[in-house]
Each structure stands twice: as C-alpha cells, then as structure tokens.
C-alpha cells in the first residue's frame, strides 16, 4: 500500500485516545478498566450512551493495552454493523472464535496478555433479536476463555438476558468544559485559531458529542483555513441559522396560511434538513413566553408525530407544512385535525 498522507487521516482517528486513562469524563469505566489492567480480571462489559462519548475508543484501547500489537490480531475479534451479523454468523464465526482456548503468554512484551480473548460487538443494538438470543448460551459456555464487549446507543434494544450477563456502564455526554479542553488541544496541535465565541458555538451545536465537534472542526478547517469563526462552524454543521427558524415561527404566529406556506417552501428550497428544523423549532416553541402550556403541548405533540413520519420516509414539505399549520391553529386556538 502506498503511504497515507498524514492529512488524509480524519482527526477523529488521529486524536482517538490510545490508552484507557486518556478517555475523558467517564470516570467509573476508566477506574474499573484500570483495575482490569492490573489484575487482568475482566467481566463481560456493556457500554451504552449517546454517540461520540468514547465507547468504541474505550473498548479498542483496553484491547490494545491488554494484548499489545502482536497478539491483538489473534486475540480480539471486532464485529460491527458493516459486517453481516445475522444468526448464522453468531452460530459459526463468533462461536468458533469463542471456543478456541488460549494460554497466558508472557514473553516480556510488557502487556498483561490475560488468558482469554475479547469479542467486541460494536453497534450491538442493530443486531437482530434472534442473533442476540443465540449469543446467550455462547457467552456462558465459553466464559472461561472469552469476554464479550457490547457497545450500543440504546440499551433498551439489547435483550434483557444479555444485559444481565454484563457489567453495564453508561457513557455520559461530555460537559462543555471537557469538550473545550480537548478542542483547544487539537487546535493547538493543528495550528488553528478559534475565538471564544466559535468555541462555545462548537460545543453548543455538537451537544456533547465529541466526534461531531471534531468533525465539524476539521470540516471548517478544510474549507475556511486556519482561523475559524462561529459562522463557518454553523455552515459546515448543517444547523439552521436562527433567523430562518424565527421567520418560520413568526409566519406561524401571523395566522396567515399562505405566509406560512411560502416560508415552508423557502425552507425546502434552501435545502435545510426538516428534522433539524423540527428540533430547532421545538426549542424556540418551548422557550417562547407568549404561548400557553396547553398550546405548547399541542404543538409538541404534532412535532413528535411529524418526526416519526419523517423517519418513516414521508415527504419533508408536507410534514413541515402540517406542523406549521398545526402550530398556527394552536396559537390562534382553533381546533386542530386528526387524532
């Protein structure tokens, strides 16, 4: 393979913590895993939490620290949603890998190399229920020689029998402070200029997701060079500018259907994402003072329905128009339709 240019590596990968102790803000997990490194004793693990909080990073880091680069390939099996993980794979590939017995090898490599293998199942919530069920027995039978690491966003999609076999760790969204220190570190490494306004915008739009923050930062750096303003960050992030949201909201308040229709058409033609629009509109409505609680409830209910419809693949224009029309009805206390 031709050598990879350093610049072509995404910063997310470049600045991924290599050691468990470098993982920010997840104290309990780090404490347990540091303990694991010393005692080489490790339960099955289940990491869950919102995206970009360090779940995969932690799992990979512990695997690397336990085995070192030489043994890593033979001791760790990493499966994620891009690999086929139907029930067949669980029955054959995982089972075969799990069944192999291994011994402790200490050839002075400086790594603990405990006498078990690790199977990392990334994005485990996208596994089918059948596949999860098939894992139950496998986990128990080979628990002497194999440890499972499950990583998922939604713990409710992991079946109870699996969850109860694991030590569960919730990964918290990162606080603004920790995010800021990490971002500033990357800025220093990459020679970027970020003023304090841009910094707070960045942690606001990424909502505790460090990966998103770094991706935005890299995108903005690629597009706009080394000094980045908060406007540049907003334009790469796909967040809708505040005045567009306000324009739609005031069109709803005006009570004129055609004005709202025009605003909605404008939003679509500008190519803004409607689901993003809905979540920003929701923020505006919840914080607005001149709407009664009941009206807010009616609007939010409709926003929730529209969001579900969008996920089902419904048309963006019609859904946003429905929300706008419903909002208008709610504000002017007209009865709304359906359900």
């Amino acid at each position: 393979m031709a050598p990879v240019l350093q610049s072509s590596q995404p910063w997310v990968e470049k600045y991924r913590p290599k050691q468990v102790k470098d993982v920010a803000h997840q104290d309990e997990v780090v404490r347990v895993l540091t303990n694991t490194l010393e005692t080489t004793n490790c339960p099955h693990m289940l990491f869950y939490g919102p995206p970009g909080t360090g779940k995969t990073t932690t799992a990979l880091a512990i695997a690397h620290q336990l085995y070192g680069p030489e043994l890593y390939k033979s001791r760790v099996l990493e499966l994620n949603a891009s690999d086929d993980r139907g029930i067949n794979v669980v029955r054959t590939k995982i089972k075969n890998f799990a069944a192999v017995a291994v011994g402790t090898v200490r050839h002075g490599s400086g790594y603990p190399c405990p006498p078990y293998k690790i199977i990392i199942l990334d994005e485990a919530d996208s596994m089918t229920e059948d596949a999860q069920n098939a894992l139950r027995r496998t986990m128990e039978t080979y628990s002497k020689v194999t440890r499972f690491f499950f990583i998922c966003n939604y713990i409710s999609r992991i079946i109870e029998p699996l969850a109860s076999r694991c030590a569960k760790f919730r990964f918290k969204p990162l606080t603004e402070e920790i995010m800021t220190t990490r971002i500033l570190y990357i800025c220093k490494e990459e020679g970027l200029n970020l003023d304090s306004e841009a910094l707070s915008t960045l942690s606001c739009i990424s909502q505790g997701d460090l990966r998103r923050a770094i991706t935005y930062l890299q995108g903005a750096a690629r597009l706009f060079g080394s000094s980045i303003s908060s406007k540049d960050l907003i334009s790469v992030s796909g967040v809708i500018p505040e005045d567009v949201v306000q324009a739609l909201f005031s069109a709803c308040k005006s009570g004129n259907f055609d004005t709202a229709d025009k605003e909605v058409k404008n939003v679509i033609a500008e190519g803004y994402s409607v689901s993003q629009m809905l979540s920003q509109l929701y923020d505006v409505i919840v914080e607005s003072d001149d709407i009664s609680d009941e009206q807010k409830a009616r609007i939010c209910k409709k926003i929730a329905e529209a969001d579900k419809c969008l996920i089902d693949g419904a048309d963006e224009y019609l859904q946003l128009l429905g929300v706008a029309s419903n909002t208008m009805c709610a504000i002017s206390n007209m009865p709304s339709f359906g359900s």
């Binding site: 529209a306 089902d312 859904q319 029309s325 208008m328 339709f337």
Partner: peptide, 24 residues
C-alpha cells in the same frame, strides 16, 4: 390550496401529510 378558504387549508394540508405518510 389555491382555491380554498384558510380554514379548509389547514385541514387539507393535514390530510395531505397524513395520506402521504401512509403512502410511504
């Protein structure tokens, strides 16, 4: 919508969104 009263516009657009969702 071009030819409707504003009251009916709300209702019509609601049902359009509803049936389009079902169509998907």
């Amino acid at each position: 919508l071009k030819k409707l009263d504003s009251e009916l516009k709300h209702e019509t657009s609601h049902w359009a969104a509803y049936y389009e969702h079902r169509l998907r």
